[in-house]
Design a protein around this nucleic acid. Structure first.
Lengths: 337, 337
DNA sequence: CATCTGAATGAGAGCGCTCCCAATACTCAT
DNA sequence: ATGAGTATTGGGAGCGCTCTCATTCAGATG
């Protein structure tokens, strides 16, 4: 029912090969021929059959995007949506499509096999969160080109990431600039690299400031609003004057807890978050936070992945992007304050 | 490098055809042969090449998911994430994969062509928001099996939806049960079906209650927190005692505006939202809202789509799911109140 | 024991494309 | 004009699978 290369060839009185050349931008085609063929293609709205193309050429122009979604809520974090959006835009531009896999743990093993074996995709982007994600190791051992969004504690893998340590350090330093007597943090889960790294950044900023880290001033959250709320409640006993939350979602939860305790932000407790998600500018007071260049990450990821697909066997690349501190009112030292 | 059918055939000393039969569950294979072949497949971790399979068989076991993402923020609405999650789970179960297309307008036309022409997918799920989405018309005219999530004003298309009119009616009726002197609504964009339908539901509940609709008591929002905030500010002049917001995100924005105006929720203004997104239970006071069975929708969508793929030419199906009113504190008539 | 039947298997022809190699057309200098 | 050299084109094989049809084989029947 759909037209084939052969049909187009017939209609433009050339051979299948020539049409193929035109489609794939081969230089060795007379300009006039090219135009004629292109015209026929246009008029008939012809689209090459991807399956045939893949079978013959060995690639698909499709990349896989794997997002761990064990906990339903995690995917709800706007971070994923924004990154996916950026990646999708970059793909459109490069004429690639995205195969989406939300990896619920129970299907994970079967999925890894399907992904790797089916030759459905040319490469893979993994949004890994766990420190030692088995998916990453499996990918690393396979031949499949892939890019990890985030970092890995031990393996040498191609990755694109934002400097989480730097981000946390930036925010913490800024909070410290008002010299609070006690500064606390609500960390992300410590079995996630982001969670660990942001804690590290916090710790660095605190110690370089000549302070000691205190156990009572760090509570682990789970990147949800509720987690931030609960963590802040338990932090309240230690009476901190400043809090760095490892994500904006947790920061909003913390703000709720602070408000409920009858304390003022930033007068009693200053707070900063991380991610600069849309609501951050809408909270009351507006949240000081750290912005990640998600759009740029998407583009860079695709470009690097395509490079990897076409020229395998290159030295491993680790791209780290700089985050940006966005100063608003919640930290108590806004320029406007 | 990867094994082929032929390899497996050789290894188990049968023909390619027999291996194919085993893989596709054909009945005409001796039990002993089947076991032997299966064993070889297992041991070699063989995965059939999907492209070849598709080329030969004419289907891919992949469905396309199209999400309009014109405005970056829209995709951030947890609604999309949750639905996608549900769909993904259902797909895993049925051994289908998802091809994700976030349709930014500038790429839209080119994308429609790619999607339809490339025979990359067996069917499509469209999360349409616009009242008259050109994508839906294009799909409707094509041969591609597809399911619209939402409803269409004029075309007879297969769809799965939640009863938005009913949802809004439920919430509005409930708000009316405390007999506020004035009830207002923050609607969704009126160029989206959901926006229109929820307004309709609101209007029905109001008029069946013997009241008149007043223009000053309805302001159009854009489904964002900021939109809800702005809309509520302008609504404040009319001094409503109750507000139905067409989404939870807008409801939280409205609550912020109410609070800033020095009014109490629900004492001065009662409020209800729609969607029951995760934060709804965490707002202060907790938000009365309408829950949609998103997980069930995903499963139903896939099942219907697969049915459609295998047996085309069936009468158009329109599946409408019932929403559920979740009563919390923000409406002022919680059972616990 | 020849014949028939149905189950189990094998062989072959594509699916629509890419890519290699051979064939043809055209250019220019000799 | 003639041959070398180069741009352009055509033909054919094959990617790994499914599916139809032919073939083989075992057991049942008269």
């Amino acid at each position: 029912m759909s037209l084939t290369l052969e049909d187009i060839a017939q209609l433009s009185s050339v051979s299948r090969s020539t049409v193929s050349r035109v489609i794939n931008g081969d230089a060795n085609v007379r300009e006039e021929t090219r135009r004629r063929v292109l015209e026929v293609i246009q008029r008939n709205n012809y689209q090459p059959n991807l399956a045939a193309r893949q079978l013959a050429a060995g690639h698909t122009k499709v990349i896989g995007l794997v997002i761990p979604a064990g906990v339903g809520t995690i995917f709800s974090d706007p971070y994923f949506a924004q990154f996916t959006q950026g990646l999708s835009d970059a793909c459109s531009e490069k004429e690639y499509s995205i195969m989406l896999w939300l990896a619920s743990p129970e299907y994970e093993r079967r999925m890894i096999r399907r992904i790797l074996g089916s030759s459905l995709v040319d490469g893979i982007v993994v949004l890994s969160t766990l420190v030692d994600d088995p998916l990453v190791s499996a990918l690393h051992e396979s031949q499949m080109p892939f890019i990890l969004i985030g970092s890995h504690p031990s393996l040498e893998v191609n990755s694109v990431d934002v400097d989480n340590i730097e981000g946390a350090r930036l925010a913490t330093r800024h909070l410290l600039s008002t010299s609070p007597s006690k500064i606390a943090t609500i960390t992300g889960p410590q079995n996630m690299m982001v969670g660990r790294e942001r804690y590290q950044g916090f710790a660095q900023a605190v110690t370089e400031n000549g302070r000691k880290l205190e156990d009572t001033l760090a509570v682990e959250g789970d990147f949800t609003e509720m987690g931030g709320y609960t963590a802040m409640k338990s932090l309240l006993a230690a009476q901190p004057q400043a809090v760095f939350a490892a994500s904006d979602l947790m920061a909003t939860g913390a703000m709720r807890a602070i408000r409920e305790a009858g304390l003022r932000i930033p007068a009693d407790i200053a707070i900063a978050g991380h991610d600069d998600m849309p609501i951050a500018s809408q909270t009351n007071p507006a949240l000081t936070t750290v912005r990640q260049p998600l759009g740029q990450m998407g583009l860079l990821t695709i470009e690097t992945l395509i490079e990897l697909i076409h020229h395998p066997g290159q030295p491993t690349r680790r791209i780290v992007l700089k985050p940006e501190l966005i100063i608003r009112a919640s930290c108590g030292s806004s320029p406007a304050n």
